[in-house]
Design a protein around this nucleic acid. Structure first.
Length: 528
DNA sequence: TCTGGGGTCCTAGGACCC
DNA sequence: TCTGGGGTCCTAGGACCC
């Protein structure tokens, strides 16, 4: 445990929802819910205005609508969130090269590894406040900061700081701070572990520490028990680790209604295998074990896996393995979810091994095989500004672009050819009225609100869903590009709804998600 | 109120090998 | 031709996190 609180945890406040409010002036100060809008969707993030009504993440969207019918319900725009996240991570890297992102909106920073490590708690606090100011200036969003001598405490501090605050935990005080808290505050204690502990009469962190390591190991198993004992006694030496290679890639879809037709199930597995490989290749990786996931009508979930002789990134190989795995799964009764994943990731493929072996006239044992350079899927502007960032969803856009089910004939259920899907919240451009976003759609119509992050709240117009003047667009940046070195927008024109702005090259195109499970036939972003 | 999608890590049993 | 023992790999499932 360090003497100075130099581990920083940043957590953006209601990230997705805040980004939407920053992007859409008409939603500021109003309840906003971002998540899946289909019949089986769940809430990803609720704005603080929506939380007042009891809406929270992981809740089914249906329930959220009952609790808060007047909120704006929006489908996530990951390309925007990634863009903002990148900007925030960049600010963090100015503090220290040791930045460990946990998700798009959360990260640890080890200030001790930075150019100006704070020597006192007060100095650490100042660094944290400067960061918060910089984040707000750069993104217009707020983040909460926790500073402590360990990861666990830093994270608990930022939680405590929410929203829009900063909390420092002085090293030395952690044990007494933790003692009265419920066991659930410890990372790694979820519902199941908490219940185990409760049955053993353990409800607080203090009681956990009092139980002793041996007892916790007996209750929870070796690894879990001893690591939780350490945390309960305030010991947490986990280092901040930048750059972790991902160990698996997977995609899955929950269907609006259970699938019964076996042919359709095969078709979906084939489609998912294709998407999975697209993501795999975009990350410049290949994998050796193919995993099929099936969730049945009753929510029971099973996985089947097959390990190949060597790592592959060949769509045909992955597809065939996935289909073989499906052969052995009984799907009578209906399928709610299908997933295809690949694990055992490597930076080379079996084909590389063979090629190498051929070159050397030896068996494929040679240690130095051709390592893939950068993300393989870099061909389009997709990865654009970011040189190599294999881990995350670098492939998202590509994955979505690769639409066709390839498989079975007939209507593929969700997306009909021809009529476009207008997802609530997503960006559009109208030839005459300019930039806006979809407020709702259905019955062959689409309602668009014409406004931009820096404009006044805009007005709404309705069009036919197949209006050729209307097209999907990329999300505009949240902060208006200053008249700086590279003006992205043509002129210094003041906003107003109409007027055609030039498309924004600084932003990657928003992938429209065609065949995706959700087919919100009559959905609307906000109630009238 | 029927429960998303993307991950990580751990456990346990059986096969197989020495 | 009664049941050793350890290590590694594969498979399946489960808990947890954001």
């Amino acid at each position: 445990m360090r003497p100075v609180p130099t581990i920083l945890h940043l957590d953006m406040d209601a990230f997705f929802a805040s980004a939407e409010q920053a992007s859409k002036p008409s939603l500021r100060g109003k309840p906003v819910v971002v998540g899946g809008l289909g019949p089986r969707g769940v809430v990803a993030t609720a704005s603080y205005e929506a939380r007042v009504f009891g809406v929270h993440s992981a809740m089914s969207t249906a329930q959220a609508r009952r609790l808060c019918p007047n909120a704006a319900y929006l489908t996530p725009r990951f390309s925007l969130y990634r863009q903002v996240s990148e900007a925030v991570m960049e600010l963090l890297r100015e503090l220290s090269p040791l930045v460990e992102p946990l998700s798009l909106d959360e990260a640890f920073v080890d200030l001790e590894a930075g150019p100006a490590p704070p020597a006192t708690a007060a100095a650490a606090r100042e660094a944290g406040e400067r960061l918060r100011t910089a984040i707000r200036a750069r993104t217009s969003l707020t983040g909460s900061v926790g500073l402590a001598g360990s990861k666990m405490l830093a994270k608990m501090a930022s939680e405590h700081a929410k929203p829009d605050g900063l909390v420092v935990i002085e090293p030395g005080t952690e044990r007494e701070l933790l003692a009265p808290m419920p066991v659930r505050v410890l990372p790694g204690v979820g519902p199941a572990t908490a219940e185990q502990l409760r049955r053993a009469g353990i409800g607080t962190v203090e009681e956990m520490a009092g139980a002793g390591e041996a007892e916790l190991v007996r209750l929870l198993g070796k690894a879990h028990g001893s690591s939780l004992y350490a945390l309960a006694t305030g010991r947490d030496d986990r280092p901040v680790v930048a750059e972790r290679d991902s160990k698996s890639v997977s995609v899955e879809d929950t269907f609006d209604v259970d699938l019964h037709d076996r042919t359709r199930v095969y078709g979906e597995v084939v489609r998912l295998a294709g998407r999975c490989v697209t993501r795999l290749r975009a990350a410049g990786r290949s994998g050796r074990t193919v995993v099929l996931k099936v969730r049945r009508y009753d929510f029971s979930t099973l996985t089947r896996s097959e390990t190949l002789r060597g790592p592959t990134d060949d769509p045909g190989v992955v597809r065939e393995a996935a289909v073989r795995l499906l052969d052995g799964v009984d799907t009578t009764g209906g399928v709610r979810l299908l997933g295809v994943g690949v694990t055992g990731l490597a930076d080379f493929t079996q084909e590389d091994l063979f090629a190498q072996a051929a070159l050397e006239g030896t068996g494929p044992a040679a240690p130095a095989v051709r390592a893939r350079t950068g993300p393989g899927g870099d061909e389009d502007a997709e990865a654009g500004t970011r040189p190599d960032r294999p881990g995350q969803a670098a492939g998202e856009g590509v994955a979505a672009a690769e639409a066709a089910p390839a498989g079975d004939a007939g209507d593929a259920g969700g997306s009909r050819e021809g009529s476009r899907q207008w997802h609530p919240g997503h960006d559009v451009r109208h030839a005459e009225y300019g930039a806006g976003w979809v407020q709702g759609s259905g019955l062959g119509r689409v309602t668009v609100r014409f406004e931009q992050p820096w404009s006044e709240p805009g007005r709404v117009r309705t069009f036919r869903a197949d209006d050729p003047a209307l097209e999907p667009a990329a999300p505009p940046p949240l902060v208006r590009p200053a008249g700086g070195p590279e003006p992205v927008r043509s002129g210094g024109r003041e906003p107003g709804p109409p007027g055609g702005q030039a498309p924004d090259p600084a932003v990657r195109p928003e992938p429209s998600r065609p065949g995706a499970s959700s087919s919100p036939s009559g959905s609307s972003a906000s109630s009238p």
